[in-house]
Simulated assay, not measured.
Amino acid sequence: MRAPQFWSGGGGVLPLLLSPISAVYAGATARRMARPGWQAPIPVICIGNATAGGAGKTTVALDIGRRLADHGVPPHFLLRGYGGNLKGPLLVNAGQHDSRAVGDEALLLAAEHPTIVSADRAAGAQLGIANGARAIIMDDGLQNPGLAKDLSLLVIDGTSGFGNGRVIPAGPLREPVAAAAARCQAAILVGEDECGALAQLPRDLPVLRARLSQGPEAAMLSGQSVFAFCGIGNPRKFFTSLQESGAILAGRQSYADHYPYDSGDLRELLAEAEALRAIPVTTRKDFVRIPQAFRSRITVVNVKLEWESPAQIEALLEPLLARVPETVG
C-alpha cells in the first residue's frame, strides 16, 4: 500500500479524527514492548526506525554486517521477511526462495551473509546460533519485544523524517518518537535533516550522520536518457539521485513499497522505456522482485552507505566485539 498523503503533513481534520485510534495503537505497542525478550548468548544489534516504511535500514544493516565481518565476527541477519509469505524460522536460500517467499530485503541481505526470516525473532536467533552465528543483526524489529537487543539504532530518513509526527493511523509513526528513542543507544540520520527530525529527539541521544551514494552504474548513466521506476519507501530519493549523477530522466514510474511486479507490469514498463528511447533503470531492491525473464533488460543502480564519521559507528560496535564468544554451547 501507499502511505496516505496526510502522513507527510497537513491533512486537515482527518489526523485529528483518527487520533483516538492512534492512542489505542500506541498504548498496545507500549504494553507489548514492556515484556522482556529472550537474551541471546551472542550480541544482538537492531537496526530500527520509528515510522512505517523504508528509512534505509537494510543499507545500514549491510554496512554493519561488513564491519563485523572485517573484525572476524561472522554475523547472521534476522528479519521478518516483509512481503514474503513464509513465516520461518528458515535460512534464506537464494536458489530456492524468491521475493514472494521471503521478501526483497531478505534476498539483498542473503547475498552477503547468512540470513534468517522469522516472525518469531527469538526462534530466528536460535536458528542463527545453531548455524554458527556469532552476532545477530536485526533488520527492523525495534517494536518487537521477542528478542533482547544489545545495541539498538534508530534510523531516520532525512527527506521524510517522522512525517506529521502522529502515530498510525493518523500518521506514519509506529510509536511516539520519544518511546522509540528511549530504547536506542544512537540515531542514524541518512541524508540532510529536511524535516526537523533531529529536534524531536532527546538531546542526550548521539546522532550519527550518513548519506547514500550510488554505485559505479550511476556514473555510466551520466548523459544518458533513462526511464526510472521503483517501488520503495521514498521514490523521490531514487529519481533525484539519478539526476544528480547526470542521467537525463525521460520518464519515471513509482509503485508502493515492496510492490510485487508481474510480467504485465514489466511489459508495460519496457514498452514505455522503448517509446521514450530511454534505458530502463531501477534499484537493487526492486530488481529482486522482477520476474527472471525480464532482468537482463533492466539496468540496476546500487547504493552504499557513507558515514560522516566512521569512527562513531566503530565506537558503538567495539564493546559488542569484546563480548563475542568463541563458541556457543
Rank of each mutant, 00 (worst) to 15 (best):
R2W: 14
P4I: 01
P4A: 03
Q5H: 05
Q5K: 10
F6Y: 09
V13M: 11
L14V: 11
L14H: 06
L16Y: 15
S19D: 09
I21G: 12
I21K: 15
S22P: 07
V24I: 14
A30M: 05
M33A: 08
W38F: 15
A40F: 12
A40E: 05
A40M: 14
I45H: 10
I47H: 04
G48W: 08
N49Y: 07
A50K: 07
A52C: 11
G53I: 02
G56M: 10
K57H: 01
K57A: 02
T58D: 08
V60L: 11
A61E: 02
G65N: 04
R67G: 08
L68N: 13
A69V: 11
A69W: 12
H71Q: 07
V73F: 02
H76K: 07
R80F: 01
G81M: 00
Y82V: 09
G84R: 05
L86R: 05
K87W: 09
L91D: 09
V92K: 00
V92E: 01
G95Q: 08
Q96S: 11
D98A: 04
R100C: 10
R100L: 08
A101P: 12
V102H: 09
E105C: 01
L109H: 00
A110G: 04
I116N: 02
A119M: 07
A119D: 10
A119E: 13
A122R: 01
A123L: 05
A123F: 03
L127K: 04
G128H: 07
I129R: 06
A133F: 01
R134A: 04
M138K: 13
G141L: 01
G141H: 01
L142V: 09
Q143V: 07
N144S: 13
G146W: 13
L147A: 08
D150W: 07
S152V: 12
L154W: 03
I156Q: 05
D157G: 00
T159A: 15
E175S: 04
E175R: 03
P176K: 00
V177R: 03
A179E: 10
A179S: 15
R183I: 02
A186V: 06
G191F: 00
D193T: 10
D193A: 09
E194S: 08
G196E: 06
G196I: 09
P202E: 11
R209F: 12
R209Y: 11
R211Y: 07
S213I: 15
S213Y: 14
Q214H: 14
P216G: 06
A219N: 15
M220H: 12
S222I: 03
V226I: 10
V226C: 08
V226D: 08
V226Y: 06
F229D: 02
C230D: 11
C230A: 13
G231E: 08
I232W: 09
I232D: 12
G233M: 05
N234V: 12
R236M: 14
A247Y: 06
A247R: 05
R252W: 13
D257L: 15
Y259S: 10
Y261L: 15
G264K: 11
D265L: 10
A271W: 06
E272K: 12
E272C: 14
E274A: 07
R277K: 14
V281K: 07
T282P: 04
R284G: 14
F287H: 07
V288G: 06
V288A: 07
R295Q: 12
R295M: 13
R297K: 15
I298H: 04
V303C: 03
E306P: 13
W307L: 09
P310R: 02
L320A: 05
L321R: 00
L321K: 00
A322E: 15
R323F: 04
P325N: 02
P325C: 03
G329Y: 12
